[in-house]
Nucleic acid binder design. Structure first.
Length: 967
RNA sequence: GGGCGGUUAGCUCAGUUGGUUAGAGCGCCUGCCUUACAAGCAGGAUGUCGGGGGUUCGAGUCCCUCACUGCCCA
C-alpha cells in the first residue's frame, strides 16, 4: 500500500493523528530497567510541573520543546530515555480559582462550605478540568511516559510529604515561631519572600508631630504608612543623630491615642542604628507587628508588638474609632484627624516601593503571626559530622550548606551539579549566601496539611504520622490538628525522589535505583529559587538515607536530584516585551500552533533558543519554518514520484536503513552522492556536538542548512541527471531500454537507492525537532518502497544518525565544493550578461589540470545547474567583462550581448577596493618581524597564501576594468 | 544602592580557547509560473561589531572607562 501525499503540507491533517498514536501505542513508556540494564544508560528528566489550573504558555512550550528534543535524541541514541510528566496542585492558585467558581455559581464562600466540602470540591474540579494542560502537552507531541504521571496531591505524595516533615521536625530543622511574615490579605495567608514582588507607586511621606509626654517639646517623624501608628510602641532615632540625643529615653504621647476620656498612650524614644538620619526627619515610628524592620527593632529593645489589623487587613481595635476600617480607608481618616488635631506637619510626594503578592496582586501587609519554618542554616540534630560552623555561622550539614556544596561554580569546582549557562551558578550561590529560614506554612485549605496536633491543655505540639490519641506531654486528649497546610513548593521540592517511589522509609526502590539522580533539569530562571534550589536542599538532605544500589552510603554526588540544570530563556513578544496579561501581548501557543503547525513552532523556538538570550518570538520566523516543513514535504513528494517511475521501469527500490550501503559506496557512485553522504556524516557530528552543549539553535540551523541548502538545492537537482529511467528516455521508441547503457542503468538504480537512504536518514536527523512531519513522511516512505513493514513503530524508536554511519570522502566533498563554486560563478555571470534564463551558453575555463578535468568530467552537471552549453579549457586566463576570477579558476561565459558597463565598472571597482584593503592589512602584518616571529606557522602561511591569491584576484579585476569600454 | 547580563546588517540573533577578507534567518532589490515545492528557484545590496582608551605581532573576542539597556536582590 502506498501513501498518497497531498500536494501541500497541511500540519492539521497529520499532527493530531500522530499525537494520538504515540499516546495510545504507549511508545514512550519506560519499564524500569533492572540488572545490567540498570547500570546507567539512562537519561531521565522530570517535567517542571505546571499548575494544574494552568494553560499552556510560550514558556511551557519552549521548555517542553527543549526537553522533548533532548528526550527524543537520547532515546534515538539508544539510551533508556525517560521523561516524567506531572502537575502541581498549586495551593493558592487552585484555591482561588475554586473560590471564584463558588462565588460565580452559588454565591457561597469557602467558609460557608466548610473545609471538608471545599476540599472535595477542589478535587472534583481537578478531576473534571485538571487535565487541560496535559492535554495540551499531548498535542505538542511531548514524548513523556504517561504511565508515570504524577500529581503533587497524590496519596503517595501525601505520605512522602508527611515523612519528610516529621524527619525534618525531629532533626530540629522545622520549628514554629512568631515572626513577621508577608501576609496576603486577599487570600489571607502568609506567603514566602519569593512570592512577593515589589512595585513602585506614587505615594506620600507624612510628617507627623509626636509630643513629649512631659510637654517640653516634640519630635516629628516621617512615615509612608500613618495608619500603622495605632500599633506604634516606640520612636527610633539614630544614636549618632545629635538633633535627637536629648530625646532618647524620654516618652512621647502617641497622637490620636487619647480616646473616650482615656489619656494618650506613651511610647519611648529609642536610639537604634536602623534609623537613617538622611531619610525623612531622621526619626521613625516603630510598629513591630506590621513592619519587618520595626519587628527587628522591637526584638532588640524588647518592645511589645500589638497586632492592629485582622486577617483581611482591617483595623482590629474594638476601642478605636477606626475599628473595622480597611487599612487604606483608615489611612485617609487618620491623616484627616491628624491634620484636624494639628499633628500633621507636612505631606510630601514620595515614590514608595510596595510589596505586592505575586498570586493575587494585593498589597502585602507585613504581619506578626505564628508560622512554621524550615531552618536552612542550622545543623540538624544527630548529624554525623562534628559541627564546625563556617564564618557565616552556617552548620556544615545544614540544608543550605549541602546545597551550596552541591552546585559547581568557579569557587566550587567539585560540585556535582552543573549549571548551563554557568553564570546562573553565581546567582544561585549569591542567593544561597543570603538565604534565611523558609516559611513553609500557608493559611490555606488546599494543600498538604501539616501533621501536627496542638494540645488544648498544655499547648504542646505533637508532630505525628497519625492523629495521636493523647498529648505526649501531658496526656490530655484535647487535641486539635494544625489547620495550616504546607507551601506548594515543599511537596514539589520532593518530586525528584517521590516520582520514583520514595516514601521516607529509606528504602531503595527499583525506580530510585535506576533513575535517581536524574540527569537533567530544564527550566526557566523564574523558578531557580522557588523550586530548583529547594529540590537541591531537600534532595541532598533527605536522600542521604537511601543506599546506593550496591548498598553503600550515598555521597553528596549521589544525593543530588539532578546532575545538570539547563536554564532557558524567557520568551518575549516580537518587540522584546515581556508577555503579560495586563499588557495584553500574550501569545497563545495553541493559536500559533493551529496556524503554523506544531513542528514549525517547535523548530522556531529551538532555532532561537540560544543560551542566555531571551527569545523574541517571531511569527515571521515561524512562517519561514513552516515553509521549511513544506519544502521537506515536497522533497518527499519528489522522492515518491521517482520511486514510482523506478517501479514502472522495473526497479526494486530498497530502503537500506543504516546498513553498509551508506558506508561502502560502490565504485561507480557519482560524485554528488559521495558528497551528500559525507555531508550527512558531518552534519550528524555537528548536531551531536550542538545538542550536547544545549545549543538547540546551532543544531536546528545545521539541519535546516543541510536539508534545504544542500539536500534540496543541490542533491535533488543533481540526481535528476542520474535518474534516467528507460521509459523516460524515449517514450515512443520501441528500443528505449536497449538505448541506455547498462552502466547508466546501474547509476540510476544506485542513485535511487542513495536518494531514499539519504532522505530517510535526514528525516531521522530532523525527527526530534519536527516529530510529526518526520513521522508522517517516514511511514509514507516505507509504504512506497518495497512492501516490507517499517523497522519500528515510529521513527522516534529508530537510531539517530551518527557521523560513523556515513562514508566520509574528503576528496569528493572538495571536488563538489569546487563545482558548486563554478556553478554559482557562472550563474552570476550569466545574470550580469543578461543571458536569458533558458538559453544555454558555452563557458571557458582556465585552471590547474585537476580542476579543469573536473569541470570537463562534470559538464552534464554544469549544463543542468548553470545552463552551460559546453566547457572549453583554455590555457590563458579569460579577462574582460564576461569573465570572473576566483581562487580556484578563471571562468568566462561566451555570450555576445553587451553588458551594463557602468554596473560592471562599479562592481569591479568595489572588488578592487576590497582586495586592496585586504592586501594592505595582510602586507602590514607580513612585514612585521614580530608577527613572523611570534605568530604560529599555519597562520603565517595561511596569510601568505591568501595575500598572493588576493593580489592575483586584484590584478585580474584591474585587467577586467581596463578592458571595459570607456563610458 | 548591590549583583549579573546585553549593545554585531532594516529586524531577530549566531560568532567556540584572540588568528587569514564578520555570518544566518526574516525583510529588501532584480529576474524567473525551470513538472517536488511561487510556502518556490536564481542572482544581488546592506555592518567605522555602542563610544573612548589599553594589552597584543594580531581584538567583534581580553582589560579599563563612559553611555544606553534588561534582569535579579535590597
Amino acid at each position: 500500500m502506498t501513501t498518497e501525499l497531498p500536494k501541500a503540507y497541511d500540519p492539521a491533517l497529520i499532527e493530531e493523528k500522530w499525537a494520538r498514536y504515540w499516546v495510545e501505542q504507549r511508545l514512550f513508556d519506560v519499564a524500569t530497567p533492572t540488572g545490567e540494564a540498570a547500570a546507567r544508560n539512562t537519561f531521565t528528566q522530570l517535567l517542571p510541573p505546571p499548575n494544574v489550573t494552568g494553560r499552556l504558555h510560550m514558556g511551557h512550550m519552549l521548555n517542553q520543546t527543549e526537553m522533548d528534543i533532548l528526550t527524543r535524541w537520547h532515546r534515538m541514541m539508544g539510551e533508556t530515555s525517560l521523561w516524567v510528566p506531572g502537575t502541581d496542585h498549586a495551593g493558592i492558585a487552585t484555591q482561588m480559582m475554586v473560590e471564584r467558581l463558588l462565588a460565580a455559581e452559588g454565591k457561597t464562600t469557602r467558609r460557608e462550605l466548610g473545609r471538608e466540602a471545599f476540599i472535595t470540591r477542589v478535587k472534583q474540579w481537578k478531576e473534571e478540568y485538571g487535565g487541560a494542560i496535559t492535554e495540551q502537552m499531548r498535542r505538542l507531541g511531548a514524548s513523556v511516559d504517561w504511565s508515570r504521571e504524577y500529581y503533587t496531591m497524590d496519596e503517595n505524595l501525601n505520605v512522602a510529604v508527611r515523612e519528610a516533615f516529621i524527619r525534618l521536625y525531629e532533626q530540629g530543622l522545622i520549628y514554629r515561631g512568631a515572626y513577621i511574615v508577608n501576609w496576603d490579605p486577599q487570600i489571607q495567608t502568609a506567603v514566602s519572600d519569593l512570592e512577593v514582588e515589589s512595585e513602585e507607586r506614587a505615594g506620600h511621606l507624612f510628617h507627623v508631630r509626636y509630643d513629649l509626654a512631659d510637654g517640653t517639646g516634640s519630635i516629628t517623624i516621617a512615615t509612608t504608612r500613618p495608619e500603622t501608628m495605632l500599633g506604634d510602641t516606640a520612636v527610633a532615632v539614630n544614636p549618632t543623630d545629635e538633633r535627637y540625643t536629648a530625646f532618647v529615653g524620654k516618652s512621647l504621647t502617641l497622637p490620636l491615642s487619647a480616646t473616650g476620656g482615656k489619656p494618650g498612650r506613651e511610647i519611648p524614644v529609642l536610639a537604634d542604628d536602623w534609623a537613617n538620619p538622611e531619610f525623612g526627619t531622621g526619626a521613625v515610628k516603630v510598629t513591630p507587628a506590621h513592619d519587618p524592620n520595626d519587628f527587628a527593632i522591637g526584638k532588640r529593645h524588647g518592645l511589645p508588638a500589638p497586632l492592629i489589623m485582622d486577617a483581611e487587613a482591617r483595623i482590629d481595635l474594638p476601642d478605636s474609632p477606626y475599628h473595622g476600617l480597611d487599612r487604606f480607608e483608615a489611612r485617609q481618616r487618620i491623616v484627616a484627624d491628624l491634620d484636624a488635631a494639628g499633628y500633621l506637619v507636612k505631606v510630601e510626594d514620595h515614590t514608595l516601593t510596595l510589596p505586592i503578592s505575586q498570586r493575587t496582586g494585593a498589597v502585602i501587609e507585613p504581619r506578626l503571626s505564628l508560622q512554621w519554618f524550615l531552618a536552612v542554616n542550622k545543623e540538624p540534630a544527630g548529624a554525623t559530622t562534628t559541627p564546625a560552623a563556617d564564618s557565616s555561622g552556617r552548620g556544615p550539614n545544614s540544608v543550605a550548606a549541602r546545597a551550596v556544596a552541591a552546585v559547581r561554580s568557579p569557587t566550587n569546582p567539585d560540585g556535582p551539579i552543573k549549571f548551563t549557562p554557568e553564570m546562573y551558578s553565581k546567582t544561585f550561590h549569591l542567593w544561597m549566601d543570603n538565604i534565611y529560614d523558609w516559611c513553609i506554612s500557608r493559611q490555606l485549605w488546599w494543600g498538604h496539611r501539616i501533621p501536627a496536633w496542638h494540645c488544648g491543655a498544655c499547648a504542646h505540639i505533637n508532630v505525628a504520622r497519625e492523629a495521636p490519641p493523647a498529648c505526649t506531654a501531658c496526656g490530655s486528649t484535647t487535641l486539635e490538628q494544625e489547620t495550616d497546610v504546607l507551601d506548594t513548593w515543599f511537596s514539589s521540592a520532593l518530586l525528584p525522589f517521590t516520582a520514583f517511589g520514595w516514601d521516607g522509609s529509606g528504602t531503595l526502590t527499583a525506580d530510585l535505583a535506576a533513575f535517581y539522580p536524574t540527569e537533567l533539569l530544564v527550566t526557566g530562571f523564574d523558578i531557580l529559587f522557588f523550586w530548583v534550589a529547594r529540590m537541591i536542599m531537600l534532595g541532598t538532605h533527605l536522600m542521604t538515607d537511601v543506599p546506593l544500589p550496591n548498598g553503600s552510603r550515598r555521597t553528596l554526588a549521589d544525593t543530588v536530584p539532578f546532575r545538570n540544570v539547563y536554564i532557558h530563556a524567557l520568551v518575549r513578544d516580537a518587540n522584546r516585551e515581556k508577555m503579560s496579561k495586563t499588557k495584553g501581548n500574550v501569545i497563545d501557543p495553541i493559536g500559533i500552533v493551529e496556524k503554523y503547525g506544531t513542528d514549525a513552532v517547535r523548530f522556531t523556538l529551538a532555532s532561537q533558543a540560544s543560551p542566555g538570550t531571551d527569545i523574541a518570538f517571531s511569527e515571521a520566523r515561524t512562517e519561514g519554518n513552516r515553509a521549511f516543513a513544506n519544502k521537506i514535504w515536497n522533497a518527499a513528494r519528489f522522492l515518491h514520484m521517482q520511486i514510482e517511475r523506478g517501479r514502472e521501469a522495473g526497479y526494486t527500490v530498497t530502503l537500506r536503513l543504516h546498513d553498509s550501503f551508506a558506508l561502502e559506496l560502490p565504485e561507480h557512485t557519482p560524485l554528488e552522492t559521495r558528497w551528500i553522504f559525507a555531508r550527512l556524516g558531518a552534519v550528524s557530528a555537528e548536531v551531536a556536538r550542538a545538542l550536547e552543549a544545549y545549543r538547540f539553535d546551532e543544531a536546528a540551523s545545521a539541519i535546516y542548512q543541510f536539508f534545504w541548502g544542500e539536500f534540496c538545492d543541490w542533491y535533488l537537482e543533481l540526481v535528476k541527471l542520474r535518474l534516467v529511467f528507460p521509459a523516460a528516455v524515449e517514450p515512443d521508441a520501441a528500443d528505449a531500454v536497449t538505448a541506455i547503457p547498462a552502466e547508466l542503468n546501474d547509476v540510476t538504480e544506485l542513485t535511487l537507492g542513495a536518494l531514499v537512504t539519504v532522505f530517510e536518514a535526514a528525516l531521522r536527523l530532523l525527527s526530534p525537532f519536527m516529530p510529526f512531519l518526520t513521522e508522517e513522511l517516514w511511514h509514507a516512505l516505507y509504504s512506497q518502497v518495497d512492501a516490507a513493514e517499517p523497522p519500528a513503530k515510529s521513527i522516534a524508536l529508530t537510531r539517530y544518525p551518527q557521523a560513523a554511519d556515513f562514508a566520509g570522502d574528503a576528496a569528493s566533498a572538495a571536488a563538489m565544493t569546487t563545482l558548486q563554486e563554478l556553478i554559482v560563478t557562472v550563474r552570476a555571470l550569466r545574470k550580469d550578461l543578461a543571458v536569458p534564463e533558458k538559453e544555454p551558453a558555452p563557458i571557458q575555463i582556465a585552471a590547474v589540470p585537476a580542476i579543469a578535468a573536473l569541470a570537463l568530467a562534470n559538464a552534464d552537471m554544469l549544463a543542468r545547474m548553470a545552463r552551460v552549453a559546453s566547457v572549453e579549457v583554455v590555457p590563458q586566463t579569460p579577462t574582460g567583462a564576461n569573465a570572473r576570477a576566483t581562487g580556484s579558476f578563471d571562468v568566462a561565459v561566451v555570450y555576445e550581448r553587451q553588458i551594463d558597463v557602468a554596473a560592471e565598472r562599479e562592481r569591479l571597482e568595489k572588488d578592487i577596493a576590497k582586495f586592496t584593503k585586504g592586501l594592505l592589512a595582510a602586507e602590514k602584518q607580513l612585514g612585521s618581524e614580530s608577527f613572523l616571529a611570534k605568530a604560529p606557522a599555519h597562520i603565517v602561511d595561511g596569510l601568505k597564501k591568501q595575500s598572493e591569491e588576493t593580489r592575483s584576484l586584484r590584478e585580474k579585476a584591474e585587467a577586467a576594468l581596463a578592458s571595459l569600454p570607456v563610458a
